[in-house]
Design a protein around this nucleic acid. Structure first.
Lengths: 370, 370
DNA sequence: ACACTTGCCGAAACCGTTTTCGGAATAAAT
DNA sequence: ATTTATTCCGAAAACGGTTTCGGCAAGTGT
């Protein structure tokens, strides 16, 4: 382990800009401008100053800079903790992406939590008023998200992870769940499925709308009729996933394949299938979305669309920093695609919808006669 | 929803201390001292100033304060992301606890991630040098944790979530895994178990040591002999849990009950049990530790010790803030207890260890003859 | 009546950095 | 040899607070 740094974390007597100035026989203004790459400083002195700064271990005090520049080099992230854990399965990756991307540019990430809209706005206000952060990363976008309007009006920089319905000019990074789900439909159709159900997330979240659009588009391109009873919404948790799957499979003509808007719901679906005496990947095919790690350990492993949450965090951080710095955004917004990872849960149908229905209702009668 | 705040987040023309001074015909020094509760300001003017401050919506600029006071009112948390997700199952709760506790005192939380020791120290240095944070919350304590020595020597305030072996005078908050595991042994013994295995976490983590001590203490008080082949270490993930359980159950005299240092490992254990044609809660009893939500949805649900991670975060934040403020710590450290939550996985043994061994080896032979 | 506290506040220095402005030196143009 | 631009840097004023110090008034003790 090679390191050019001292093994201790020094705190006492930090070297200030005047120390540098003194040791180089320059004024502190010159030092500052040299470090900030002003054009009225000669290249030679810039070099000299930077070298000495490195030698003496000078690190600018961010709060002192902030008072003049108005920037603290900090990104804000407000987490909503009211909802179910499922939302935060990727939190570590996301935080890592953001923090790492910010850290390399000497920015930091401050996170806060909120339980309600009012709580969240309150937190925005406080962080902005105290100038603890220079901008926000917004996650879990709603279809109609008041936050983007508010932040936009207040002229506070922000970026969205995802999109919203409002047509304000904001920048965002998103993974196209729409095309992913559409391709899921096509893949299942290619495998021979004709009855494909869709278990969606909460309808107020924007990504749910997108994925639903993808589902409908997939039916369209595959030439399949749209069946409103094949769509279940507002399914977020494992248990809700189980119930929704149960509901779909006990339909008169049950789907032979189910697409889930969230992996977590799909994992709940496994139980419903098992309880009906069926098995996933044989009698019923599953395709999920998110790529959570638990999906790998399910039996059979869950076919899903893997989302690179770390990359999302990285991109969002850089986009926001650039925006705050007032740099021309090369891209105001960016859309990536999730990577389909076929595993054991999606295969050609072994039973037709009718056979499935017969089996299931038989199971039911069997039970009732007991 | 009643709110005294304007619906927008104002940014332009923040009200400064001079604005207050002007409107009250006082000097800015007086305003500052009034707000900071100096003793040389009369109660009447303190009241007057605070009232006006609230009316005008004055919020001090933390970076401006920081430059003089040396404090930015920010807590630091460095997350290690190299390890498996299991460590971060409670991250949301923990962050919520810390952030909420900090927020009510107008402090904030900045998080960073690190992948190695060197990386983490580097991050410490940067955050301290730039004075982005006033102190750190340290999680995932090792038995010999270099971090506490370094931070202690550098005189940087910090608190530990957990403990370490070093006998420096640091403050910590911990949940006593030791007493929990000890009581787990006793409970299982009370149910009739005589062969109790223990699947522990990584040995370099301090809590693993503590829980192992608890296990040994439990055997001691129950009068059971200690059997070194009943202890497996360094089990962190689901798959490792499965393998470890498999190993214990294929012993000549398998345990009829297993205690897991981590719920996640226990969930892996379910699979091992099922694959052997046995069932948890009947043939083999499980008791876990942590209280992760997945444990509720396992069949049977996992008996475990529930840890209040949110409360831990809250306490740690307040302890650290108090310490930074230089307030006399009423308690330098604090130990809470995990709450045992019996569910379906722990019951009286239906088979003795011999019967279990016979069944399992029969299963094995059966397979080999195929 | 006087000196002596005490309570309360204003003035000014200070924290570490950025940024504006002007001016000395040097180079280029006439 | 002047004038005119350029280049480069120093001096000083910000930024928005905190903290020290000194002083005026009112109360206290003799």
């Amino acid at each position: 382990m090679v390191s050019t740094h001292p093994k201790n974390i020094q705190l006492k007597h930090r070297v200030k800009i005047v120390d540098l100035a003194q040791s180089l026989n320059l004024s502190k203004g010159t030092i500052s401008r040299a470090l900030n790459d002003y054009s009225d400083i000669s290249d030679s002195t810039k070099l000299r100053v930077r070298k000495q700064a490195k030698i003496m271990g000078y690190i600018p005090l961010s709060s002192a800079q902030a008072i003049k520049t108005g920037r603290v080099r900090a990104l804000g992230l407000v987490l909503r903790v009211d909802s179910h854990d499922s939302h935060h399965a990727f939190l570590t990756d996301f935080l890592d992406g953001v923090s790492r991307s910010a850290g390399t540019r000497n920015w930091t990430l401050t996170v806060a939590t909120a339980t309600s809209d009012e709580d969240e706005l309150q937190t925005f206000r406080r962080l902005v008023a105290e100038r603890k952060v220079d901008g926000f990363i917004i996650t879990r976008c709603l279809v109609n998200d008041i936050r983007v309007g508010l932040l936009h009006d207040a002229q506070i920089p922000f970026v969205l992870y995802g999109r919203t319905n409002l047509d304000a000019d904001y920048s965002y990074f998103d993974i196209s769940g729409e095309t992913a789900i559409e391709s899921a439909v096509c893949r299942l159709v290619a495998l021979g499925h004709k009855n494909i159900g869709f278990i969606n997330g909460p309808e107020d979240l924007n990504f749910s709308q997108m994925r639903k659009n993808g589902y409908l588009a997939g039916l369209e391109t595959s030439g399949l009729a749209q069946n409103s009873s094949y769509i279940v919404s507002d399914v977020l948790t494992r248990e809700q996933g189980q119930m929704a799957t149960q509901a779909l499979l006990t339909l008169p003509t049950p789907p032979t394949a189910i697409i889930f808007s969230l992996d977590m719901a799909a994992l709940g679906g496994y139980r419903a299938v098992e309880k009906l005496g069926l098995s996933v990947g044989k009698d019923v095919s599953f395709i999920g979305y998110d790529g959570i790690s638990q999906g790998v350990y399910a039996t059979p492993a869950l076919s899903t669309f893997e989302v690179d949450t770390r990359q999302a965090g990285e991109r969002l951080a850089t986009m926001l920093i650039d925006q705050i710095r007032g740099e021309p955004l090369e891209k105001l917004n960016e859309i990536q695609h999730a990577k389909f990872t076929p595993r054991g849960s999606s295969n050609p149908p072994q039973k037709t919808s009718e056979q499935l229905a017969e089996f299931i209702s038989g199971k039911h009668n069997e039970r009732e006669t007991l």
